[in-house]
């Protein structure tokens, strides 16, 4: 292979991997909440964006990237707890809560979008975080920043950890039990509401982390929220609600689709391709490709 080809291939690989890992992470957050608690949260894209914007403000105020990330994660935890206490727990016992919750969170999406455009929208139009680590590593002829390599590693580690948690840990087993049969699980002594709360917190935190990692790797603007929301839902539907493995595989496929299609067609054709995949999936196999 010539250097020129190698350059394009390496850049495609790196973009596909990073995008895929972040897609997978956010979709994992969404899928944990939806698959376990049956709450489709349409505002997850705005939470993703909130994390990124908060980190941008903190680093702008002079904090280091690492410190900012830890603060934002803590903030996210507090916020999710508050939201759970204020709004989400009211829906736990509502049967057929899907549409109600979806519409409710669409309302929340609009509120957050309005607030963002009145605040951050006035301060800047595109945002970047200072890198966690500096320097570049040459992959063949392609220079990849160490920062992006670190982002990729963090995303993969968190994905693996949440997969293991759901598969092997006691909490994960309780969670799957609640999902399969809430009454039976309650009879066997599982605290259903506690499991719901845990899942919501875990899912939200993962989405927050996804926003932070995206902001570290790329520059972003306010429109990223909506794109990410729809993408995460698409991945969840195709991968199967509740399946972290499905989120990982499908997220990677979408990431690489984005990178590859944008070479051969245009950066925009990629978006179509995975939305169409989701539509086809919804029509022909709404339960998704992977079991939880």
């Amino acid at each position: 292979m010539s250097d020129a080809t190698l350059l394009v291939v390496a850049s495609t690989l790196s973009t596909g991997l990073i995008l895929g890992a972040i897609f997978a992470l956010v979709a994992a957050g969404v899928t944990i909440v939806y698959g376990c608690v049956w709450l489709p949260n349409a505002s997850n894209g705005q939470f993703f964006l909130l994390a990124a914007l908060a980190a941008w403000s903190l680093t702008g105020a002079g904090l280091g990237s690492a410190a900012a990330i830890i603060m934002v994660l803590l903030l996210g935890l507090v916020l999710s707890l508050g939201l759970e206490w204020l709004l989400v727990r009211r829906l736990y016992d509502v049967p057929n809560r899907n549409v109600a919750c979806f519409v409710l969170t669409l309302g929340l999406t609009q509120i957050m979008a309005g607030i963002f455009s009145m605040t951050w929208g006035r301060w800047s139009d595109q945002y970047t975080l200072p890198p966690l680590v500096s320097g570049i590593t040459m992959i063949g002829p392609f220079p990849m920043t160490n920062n992006r390599i670190l982002v990729l590693l963090i995303a993969l580690v968190v994905l693996a950890a949440s997969f293991a948690l759901l598969r092997y840990h006691r909490y994960g087993r309780a969670l799957r039990a609640v999902f399969q049969n809430r009454e039976a699980a309650a009879l066997r002594g599982v605290d259903v509401r506690a499991v719901y709360r845990m899942s919501f917190l875990l899912g939200s935190s993962i989405i927050f982390l996804g926003g932070l990692l995206f902001a570290l790797a790329y520059s972003f603007d306010l429109t990223v929220a909506w794109t990410m929301s729809v993408t995460a839902f698409a991945i969840m539907i195709v991968g199967g609600p509740g399946s972290v493995l499905g989120a990982l595989v499908v997220g990677m496929v979408f990431g690489f689709t984005q990178a590859i299609v944008s070479i051969f067609a245009s950066p925009t054709a990629a978006t179509f391709s995975y939305l169409l995949a989701m539509l086809a999936m919804l029509l022909f196999k709404p339960t998704g490709l992977f079991l939880r």
């Binding site: 489709p40 057929n96 899907n98 549409v99 979806f102 519409v103 729809v230 839902f233 698409a234 539907i237 925009t268 978006t271 179509f272 939305l275 169409l276 989701m278 539509l279 919804l282 029509l283 709404p286």
Partner: peptide, 26 residues
């Protein structure tokens, strides 16, 4: 899609359709 899906899945599906249409306009 409404022939197969109702409720939340239909709404989600219509949301995706709307997004695709908007993108197509652009």
């Amino acid at each position: 899609p409404s022939l197969r899906l109702t409720g939340f899945y239909f709404t989600l599906c219509s949301l995706v359709i709307q997004t695709v249409i908007t993108l197509a306009f652009v």
